[in-house]
Design a protein around this nucleic acid. Structure first.
Lengths: 348, 348
DNA sequence: TGCCGATGCAGAAACGCCTTCTCGCCATTC
DNA sequence: GAATGGCGAGAAGGCGTTTCTGCATCGGCA
């Protein structure tokens, strides 16, 4: 028992530092440091003694100091808007998990997608010398990309390309085309697309693929655009699509949430049965898509896979800081459930 | 134009430091520091000049160094399991938003709820000298609470009391009682409770309140327990509840996801109509509860309010580091929709 | 048995970057 | 001419890492 004994715990209102551990273990400050650095030259006996002292004192290496010297921390920033919404909540969960598994520490900047807000987020992350920034929503302006490059901070953008940064994407256009093909192979030619007014590159690609493939086969596509790409947006799109005298026989929805809103609207306000009178295909395959009510045919976009690729891209970028922007494009595959008639001839 | 001119951007593979800003602005190092500290004695003109230089160079104060000196960072840790699931995704979103609004920077530790995992999360957060830790899932062991106290790091636990730390809670038991009262006032006496095998304090309180109130009025409650408190768990609970010859007339579900699973199971596998033959009440009021398919009567637990209270508690704790553990108990209120028959006499 | 060189380990010192404090100086201002 | 406010210079402090140097120990060889 030494002087800072157990009977005075109140006084210890601060973190213990390496000097205290050194004193307790009867070694030098640097020995403590070495004990915590893998591969450093310390004898096993001494390391053990130091670790015991550290454990007893509740010592924890100060990552702030460590990062100061290393000029980088293990913090990784995730910049995201509405992280609670649909697919994004799963992506955030998968990314935080993957990053922690990697030994990094995820910071989640929940903010808008305007340029100002993105720049503010970047400043915060620079301030903590974040190891990297991953952008899940919105498109970084080129100044953003440039500044990250200048500071040597990897920047990964999900769901956008052409930003000048590394990105992970999926084949939205291909999926859109495939959705059209599923409908067409069933003989359905009156098609609909349920999207949103505020179009993002992602949704535009899905729309383009779908419309192009439909046009190529002489099918017509009528468009419905809700306010947001969520449940209410789906209802609104449905209202538009099914208001006219010639409603579509099949609708491709920009994501699952929109599909749910659309389906519920159709069930309540029309007599159409799904999938007999109306085929619906969604996008994302969030867990709700498998719920019995919806039983939605949709395109699977596995958040864990996306997260793994983002992390892999980060590793690569750190290995080669100066190589040109890398682009990773993932494939999606359709998950067949009951909301769309699927032709026998069709192989996903 | 000085020597590190614009024609050699490649060389700037590092963060610019305060000395460089000082040199560029033609002022002293300390002036730069003063310019970035609110309330320090700098003339407006000089500050402006410094800010301009900082802007041009892309300078950002190193929060690692700042935190090292201050012995604390502005990082706040959120420890959470399955942050993508139901109510929790909304809570995480609300907390990150509230914290950022406050000027803090949220770290999200997505991990299990075992003691080991919680302790590992704590170590990480100590390492970065986090301003505070907020636990959303699981119960911190007493060593955890003690260590946080010793290190002077505020610790806030959501949804658990009796941990020795500050906590924010809701009146689960009262809500359970109210659910029972709604059913009873309708003359429904064959009641059911849909919960999970792995019981948490939160769910136990809801269950207790419900069962006690029912028992006090001579009603019987049969229990269904799914594996997890999610959709599949709700289906499983429904299977148990509706297997016997005397199914319940009304079921209180431990949360909305369970209610959805239960409702879907009932619709598919029984002929019972909701709410004519079966009343269902959920808990949380996540957005899906308002979807037309479910139109679920449920208890509202506003994530933004919960987050605001958590942040307020944090402010209070920082103002008075040594006051005894604080407990904040929020009320819930029932949101009446169509899944349960509501008696005319009933006032929420 | 005694000595040399090699080896491994420990301690001292410097470094990273910012904040804060103390002085001392200069230019205003009354 | 004295008082004030702004500013520069310099140094300390916070904490861990890394490099350098010195010392002890050990193996090997004569």
């Amino acid at each position: 028992m030494d002087s800072n004994g157990d009977d005075l715990p109140k006084k210890t209102q601060h973190y213990v530092s390496a000097v205290e551990v050194a004193r307790k273990a009867g070694v030098s400050r640097s020995a403590v440091s070495r004990a915590f650095t893998p591969g450093a030259s310390v004898s096993a006996k001494k390391r053990e003694k130091i670790m015991a002292a550290a454990e007893e004192l509740g010592y924890q290496v100060n990552d702030l100091a460590r990062g100061l010297l290393a000029r980088t921390s293990r913090l990784v920033g995730l910049v995201v808007t509405n992280p609670e919404l649909g697919y994004r909540s799963h992506l955030v969960a998968a990314l935080t998990k993957a990053l922690i598994h990697r030994g990094s520490v995820p910071i989640v900047i929940n903010t808008g997608r305007t340029e100002e807000e993105l720049v503010a987020a970047q400043k915060t992350l620079f301030g903590y010398r974040a190891e990297a920034t991953i952008i899940l929503s919105g498109s970084p302006p080129s100044s953003f990309v440039e500044l990250a490059r200048r500071n040597g901070q990897p920047l990964i953008v999900l769901g956008r390309s052409e930003t000048g940064a590394d990105d992970v994407n999926i084949d939205n256009e291909g999926a859109g085309r495939e959705a059209a093909r599923v409908f067409l192979a069933n003989g359905l030619t009156a098609l609909g697309f349920a999207g949103t007014v505020s179009r993002t590159p992602t949704t535009i690609e899905r729309e383009n693929g779908f419309c192009q493939e439909a046009a190529a086969h002489g099918a017509t596509v009528i468009m419905g655009h809700g306010g947001n790409s969520d449940y209410a947006g789906g209802q609104e799109a449905a209202r538009q699509l099914f208001a006219g005298s010639e409603p579509p026989q099949a609708v491709f929805c920009v994501n699952d949430l929109v599909a749910f809103g659309l389906i519920d609207h159709v069930r309540r306000h029309t007599s159409l049965r799904i999938p007999e009178d109306l085929s619906v295909i969604g996008f994302d395959d969030i867990p709700e898509a498998a719920w019995e009510t919806y039983n939605l045919t949709t395109f699977r976009q596995d958040p864990a896979v996306m997260a793994a690729h983002a992390v892999a891209l980060l590793d690569q970028r750190q290995a080669e800081p100066d190589c040109p922007p890398m682009h990773d494009r993932l494939n999606t595959h359709i998950v067949v459930r009951g909301s769309a008639r699927i032709p026998h001839s069709f192989k996903p």
